[in-house]
Amino acid sequence: MSVTVTNQPSAFPEVVADAVRESIASSLGTILGTAPVEGESDPELRSLSRVLGVISMVGEGSWTVAFTFPEPTAVTLVQQFCGFEIEFAAPEMGDAVGELVNVVAGELVAQLEARQIKAQMSLPMVARGKNVEVMMPAGLPSIDLNYLSEQGAFWVKLIAARPGQSLGRRPGS
């Protein structure tokens, strides 16, 4: 199956968005015990310090998936994932979020394959700070997903890169 990516804002491939949704529900559901559900965005959370986990898919198209975890969510979610506590300011927080995103991306590769879309994942990138966000060229198609979980709210931005473009670093490189 070939997925055509255009620069039209409305053109983010729905089949990829569905695969992302299923990956989040499946992998985070396993890790957290209960799958997070899509919900309304909470503007207050947007003002908190946050950690970003970004991973790209490269194959028949190129997509970036950027998770944003506000501080309280990041701390409780990472504790559930790792089995031990990690402070928000600790260097290991980035490491843990990178791994968490990596696990979701592994499931996403499988979900895409089930939809006859071949893709490879990049190594994850992580950033932490207040108001930190992914900067991409203007006009790329994107979708915002807001999630609620027992560990707190978080949001995910899906961005389709132009053909041949990718944010990610390939493993082994």
């Binding site: 790792c82 089995g83 031990f84 990690i86 290991e92 490491d95 843990a96 791994e99 190594l123």
Partner: peptide, 13 residues
């Protein structure tokens, strides 16, 4: 593993 946290998780497991 390139992730220290994941190495800790593997060792803990």
């Amino acid at each position: 593993d390139d992730s220290k946290v994941m190495r800790m998780m593997v060792m803990s497991g």
